[in-house]
Write a protein that binds this DNA or RNA. Sequence first.
DNA 1: CCAAAAGTGTTGTTTATACACCCATGT
DNA 2: ACATGGGTGTATAAACAACACTTTTGG
Lengths: 225, 225
Amino acid sequence: MNTKQFCYWHPHPAVTTDIVLFTLRAEKLQLLLIRRRNPPFQGGWALPGGFLDMDEDLADCAKRELEEETGIKNIYLEQLYTFGKAKRDPRERVISVAYYALIASDRITLKPASDATEAAWFAFDELPELAFDHREIVEKAHERLVAKLDYSTIAFQFMPKQFTLSELQNVYETIRAEALDKRNFRKWILARNLVEATGLERRNGSHRPAQLFHFKRPGRVEIIR
Amino acid sequence: MNTKQFCYWHPHPAVTTDIVLFTLRAEKLQLLLIRRRNPPFQGGWALPGGFLDMDEDLADCAKRELEEETGIKNIYLEQLYTFGKAKRDPRERVISVAYYALIASDRITLKPASDATEAAWFAFDELPELAFDHREIVEKAHERLVAKLDYSTIAFQFMPKQFTLSELQNVYETIRAEALDKRNFRKWILARNLVEATGLERRNGSHRPAQLFHFKRPGRVEIIR
DNA sequence: CCAAAAGTGTTGTTTATACACCCATGT
DNA sequence: ACATGGGTGTATAAACAACACTTTTGG
């Protein structure tokens, strides 16, 4: 079959979703990129994503594409912004509904690269050139992430089930790219009543063991303040 | 010509923009609705909006549709959210990129209703049934508006060039649906250094005249706090 | 002189910031 | 014993919340 069989009375743009998937590895904010197999930008790096199926919701499309390209599922996903400049894709008019997603550092193993997809993590401050307007999408996602740190419980999406307060503080410091006072951070987080000591400890190196905490309402991202 | 002449290799959804246009009239938060001339929901009320042209940016589409249907232009417009449930339009798959907009109370006169469009203002708390998922869009726009009052200068978009502090307080009170303390409000707004006395006064009734202020950086909506 | 909205300060409470030492462990 | 990260309190400053009376005008 080589005829264009989907026909309309008026011109229609294509609709895709693109996903900015963040994690924290090696004390750095990183995000996931896919190497493009086809033109345009063939061989270049781009955000995971792809075309919307006619019977699926937008967020389902983002989840499906992410799983297809990386094997990752069941993560926190939120709509970011819709990018629709007339010339953002050289092939045809494409509207991209961008999502951003967060994944805990203990869940970041990708499925082995197949013929179809090569995926890799990149430090946010050392990104390669990106295809299309994906650099702009990444910037916007980062802005949103930084903003949400302050007034929501989004940071917990980066954490494993159990974590120490120092590890949590590290997440805030890494994303905000600034050092925080240990006592003030602990007061702040404990006053908000979001975490609870498990009674367990982590023995790590040649120093006092740290208490392990867990997030009281896992899964849900709430507005705090 | 009665053939569907726009053909693609893969199915494409239609893309529209819808606009939630708020204003303040008669001490109430109001928004603009259009009466639908065609099925589905013929004769019902819906948000202004319409299909994206292939060569225009999303925000331009929103502006154009708003102007076509109401004559209103040059207003504050911001992308809200993209709605894309598979069944939100009974005719075909439609992705709606929703925008919200604010207009000052002294600029709300609509162009006379033409054959093509009947538009009217409705109080936010007395809306009629809305077509499609427009009720959901309106709710989300309202949420955003209320949130942005606190941490941005969005409220000034409702104000005429010159206004009294009592009028400004009224805007905050109306949108937040709660009374504010006069002294604390004035301290708060003046501490932020956003307004400036013009030296003029408004003589209104049989009481002390009020100073007129103006917004120092009109046009721009900034994040405060 | 009366009614009506404009205008103005102080006090107590909560929240944020700055800052330094002791504790428990492994080697 | 020492190096390492874990854990804790206090004092100051800033922001916010509660609260009532005087001023100026028009009729």
